[in-house]
């Protein structure tokens, strides 16, 4: 029981962090950013290169990853999303193509062998049959801090409220003096930065590989479908449902069914509540 609680909390925190940047873009920009997983990959490789190859301090690696993720998000918006104004299918296809192109680029620069990141924070504790690493605790805590910080930012700052406003009514936002273009750009920057931070943690859990963008994208899409694309708190809750379900399945039933229950949940939610458990598309 203790094991499920601890491991569930740790994994769910990571999943929430992965999904939240994706939710943000969909809610504000109404775009399925299929290159979202690439933000995680870019973050992971940036950290790997600075902290592990150049052996700079890990904090520098994390910060640089976030900066690169933010810039990457801005470039995606300026060079891809904005010129394709409003054409959702074209945006979705081109973000997918971008993901594949960047995958090829990563192979070119880093090769296609998978790499393991050092723990960002060292240390491990044993409680009976449960091992807890400081790294995963930091990832979960970090994700809580980032998500709650994001929540406060969205709710309590002018730019955050403007993001919500754009997500709910573009015309209403414009006549309130908000420039949707700037808010969209800011959203892509924040989403890119969150994605990169999630990528550092995700990669430190698992591995770096040129195809690592797929798994987090699936996690994000799953959480967002089940949650109903939209609220940050909904994302947080569903991330915990999926994370705990995975740990419970693995611990009590069969590890090979890890993803199956998640898929069943997604299908069930789609059938019973097509708009998701917290069904709405706005932040």
């Amino acid at each position: 029981m203790f094991q499920i609680l601890i491991q569930g909390l740790l994994l769910s925190g990571l999943y929430a962090l992965i999904a939240v940047g994706f939710t943000l873009i969909f809610s504000v920009g109404r775009v399925l950013n299929l290159a979202y997983g690439v933000s995680l990959m870019v973050g992971g490789y940036t950290f790997f290169y600075t902290a592990q190859v150049l052996e700079m301090p890990k904090l520098v690696g994390v910060l640089l990853a976030i900066v690169v993720g933010a810039v990457f998000g801005l470039l995606k918006y300026r060079l891809l999303v904005k010129p394709l104004k409003g054409d959702h299918v074209a945006i979705e296809i081109s973000t997918l193509i971008l993901a594949v192109v960047i995958q090829a680029g990563i192979i070119l620069v880093f090769g296609d062998a998978t790499k393991i990141l050092h723990s960002i924070i060292d240390g491990v504790w044993q409680f009976g049959t449960v091992s807890i690493t400081a790294n995963n605790v930091a990832a979960a805590l970090g994700s809580w801090v980032l998500i709650l910080g994001l929540y406060a930012f969205i709710k309590k700052t002018h730019i955050g409220r403007a993001m919500q406003a754009v997500s709910m009514d573009q015309k209403g936002a414009a006549i309130s003096g908000v420039e949707p273009d700037k808010v969209n750009a800011a959203t892509w920057v924040i989403s890119g930065a969150l994605g990169a931070a999630a990528g550092v943690f995700f990669a430190s859990y698992t591995q770096l590989s040129p195809s690592m963008w797929v798994a987090p994208l699936i996690i994000a899409v799953a959480i967002v479908i089940v949650g109903g694309i939209g609220s940050i708190i909904g994302t947080l809750i569903v991330a915990h449902i999926i994370g705990f379900m995975e740990i419970i399945t693995t611990t009590l039933f069969a590890a090979e069914l890890r993803g199956v229950f998640t898929m069943i949940l997604i299908i069930a939610v789609l059938v019973i509540r097509p708009r998701g458990l917290f069904g709405r598309e706005e932040l």
Binding site: A162, Q164, M168, G172, E282
Partner: peptide
């Protein structure tokens, strides 16, 4: 505007505060 174009899932106060974006 005619259809108000409010932000439906934001509170009254937050709706008003968005209006203050440039003021």
């Amino acid at each position: 505007p005619e259809r108000a174009n409010l932000f439906p899932y934001m509170s009254v106060e937050d709706n008003l505060l968005v209006g203050a974006y440039t003021a």
